[in-house]
Design a protein around this nucleic acid. Sequence first.
DNA 1: CCATTATTTCAATAATCGTCGAAATATGGA
DNA 2: TCCATATTTCGACGATTATTGAAATAATGG
Lengths: 114, 114
Amino acid sequence: MEKTNAVTALAALAQDNRLDVFRLLVQAGPDGMAAGAIAEALDLAPNTLTFHFDRLRMAGLATVRREGRSMIYAARFETMNDLIEFLTENCCDGAFCVPAAACKPARKRNKVPA
Amino acid sequence: MEKTNAVTALAALAQDNRLDVFRLLVQAGPDGMAAGAIAEALDLAPNTLTFHFDRLRMAGLATVRREGRSMIYAARFETMNDLIEFLTENCCDGAFCVPAAACKPARKRNKVPA
DNA sequence: CCATTATTTCAATAATCGTCGAAATATGGA
DNA sequence: TCCATATTTCGACGATTATTGAAATAATGG
């Protein structure tokens, strides 16, 4: 990931409502969530939400697809992982550092025993 | 890490010059770097740099100490790790996700732990 | 104490950001 | 087609942001 993409992604996440949206999408998994459902869950005006979705999409952190009348938004886990890798790379000149975590979204939302 | 701290940390990193500063500190390791050296390395005005240092410190991403006439800034790796953990937690409801990476800075230069 | 170096504080400014209201667009159903 | 639903677009607004220049503060050495 290039620095300018990292800054864009960080800026996309660096806002209260947008971070909420992203985390909701992260928890929703690859199937995503309808804009209306997110609006209701977070109590946000639909046009405000569109503004935030745009930021997340431009940052590569979310995707959209239409499904009937609804727009379904989903998180892009790959970008999140790239960002984390970018933040941790070159840490202490590489000495004693563990590689960044990769979130590998499961297709179904099965709880994993702790 | 709480959400508001995460937003602050993300905002602190979501700016070109500040991300450069932080990465420089990350690479410098626990011993840190003098403000003047950073100013020279990144070609930034000292007062502008103070502004950015403040953001990083308020976000818990950097510390300062005085050493003679110089102010030595250093990255706080713990906060970076907390942030990464926050971003990846609850990923896909916890299913199939690897825990976040931890950067454990080595004291590779002959420096005694405080 | 004075001069020098290193960094911070303060005030001002342009640019960007997040939210709102009103209107527009797209889809599906009667 | 007409209507309701779902979401986006547009124009405006106050708030925050990053940078600058000038002046202030802190530490060191002569």
